[in-house]
Amino acid sequence: MVVLMSLLSDRFLTVENGLNILRQISVNLCLSVGMTLIILSGGIDLSVGAVLALAGAVAAGLLKEGLSLPMFGVLLQFTVWGAILAGVVVGLALGWFNGFVITRFRLPPFVATLGTLSVARGLTMLWTGGYPITGLGETFGFMGTGFWLGVPMPVWICAFWVAVFVVVTRRTRFGRHLYAVGGNERAALLTGLPVERVKLWVYTLGGGLAGVAGLMVTARLDSAQPNAGLGYELDSIAAVVIGGTSLSGGRGSVMGTVLGCLIIGVLNNGLFLLNVSPFWQQVIKGLVILAAVALDRMSQRND
């Protein structure tokens, strides 16, 4: 794809465009790393886009207006770091809620996370009143628009989390348990592995990473939009699947997801530079996803 796009457009293979691609995929990559953990465990999370929106809105609202407690006659003001922490906590809490209802009440992940999607969207509208929260300041905005050593800050943030979860999945006991649970949950349970605890952790981490993605979106736009993150869950699932992670669980990797995000990013960027219609871009992206899944299935049969 890179070779083809380079031949078709002289603007593609430049440092500026390369950084632009990395910046564009940063939010999806952050979501997709969390989605990788969830899918590896044999689950799915349809709520990440809504969690992203709520986390960004809560952080923006606390930073801009603070938190009023009329019962005590108190108005709590938040620093930038306090607002960032609050946004991440919101993501972690919603992710934990997903894991709790799935493990405690045995709800299918599809149904549980679909319900959380609706809850988070409703809470976002209630928190914002349906209006954007703007004017968040340069310090907060640096997380989305700033540069460090010539590289955009969202790229650094994503690189950090990718490195963390590559180590977690490859070098820790939790990572081994994760693959075991996703590969064969019943066998993992019979061998004494803490299946419910693993599931609770992966959904909590997935929600936390969605919260981080929400902060990056809000910082980049200098605005918390009530409808932020619409359809983002589909893009993250697509990146995970293209990266070779099996939807049945137990097979895949974080680095594969990075490759999946890059494929989608290069494709979107190249088609834009070639002035391809946005409608055709959707068609081509869908065909690429289908081809990636078909190749994955064929490789599994050959194995």
Score class of each variant (00 low, 15 high):
P109L: 02
T103E: 04
V111S: 02
G115P: 00
V88Q: 03
V88M: 13
I84G: 08
V111L: 14
R121W: 13
G61F: 05
T116K: 07
L85A: 15
L136F: 05
L117P: 00
G137A: 04
G42P: 06
I102R: 10
G130T: 12
G43E: 10
I38R: 05
D45L: 04
S47F: 05
A55I: 12
G122W: 08
W127M: 14
F78M: 11
V90P: 11
V74D: 03
L69E: 01
Y131S: 14
F105Q: 03
A55F: 11
V89R: 05
L37A: 06
L117W: 13
A50H: 07
L76I: 14
F97E: 03
L126Y: 11
V74W: 07
V51D: 03
M125S: 05
V51C: 00
S118P: 00
A93I: 14
P132I: 11
G82M: 06
I84N: 04
A112R: 01
L136H: 02
A86L: 01
L75C: 04
T139E: 15
G73E: 08
L75Y: 01
L92R: 12
P132Y: 10
L69Q: 01
V119A: 05
V48K: 05
L37H: 01
S41L: 07
G56V: 08
T124V: 09
G130S: 13
D45V: 01
V51N: 03
E138K: 15
T139Q: 14
I133N: 10
F72A: 15
A55S: 15
I102H: 07
F97K: 00
V80E: 02
V48G: 06
L52G: 09
F78Y: 14
L63A: 14
I44N: 08
S68V: 14
A55T: 12
I39P: 02
L126P: 12
W127P: 06
G42E: 08
G91H: 02
A55G: 13
L67C: 08
A93M: 14
A93S: 15
G135E: 06
A86G: 04
V88E: 00
L54E: 03
Q77R: 15
A59K: 02
G56I: 03
F72C: 02
V48W: 07
A83N: 09
T103V: 13
I84T: 03
E65M: 13
T128I: 13
S118G: 12
G137E: 09
L92Y: 08
D45I: 03
T128D: 05
T139L: 12
A57V: 12
T116G: 10
L46A: 09
L46K: 01
V89D: 04
W127C: 06
E138D: 15
G56T: 07
N98Q: 06
S47D: 07
T134H: 11
L85S: 14
V101W: 06
A86T: 01
Q77A: 13
I84E: 01
T124K: 10
F97D: 06
G82V: 06
R104D: 09
F100P: 00
V88K: 04
V51T: 13
G73W: 07
L117G: 07
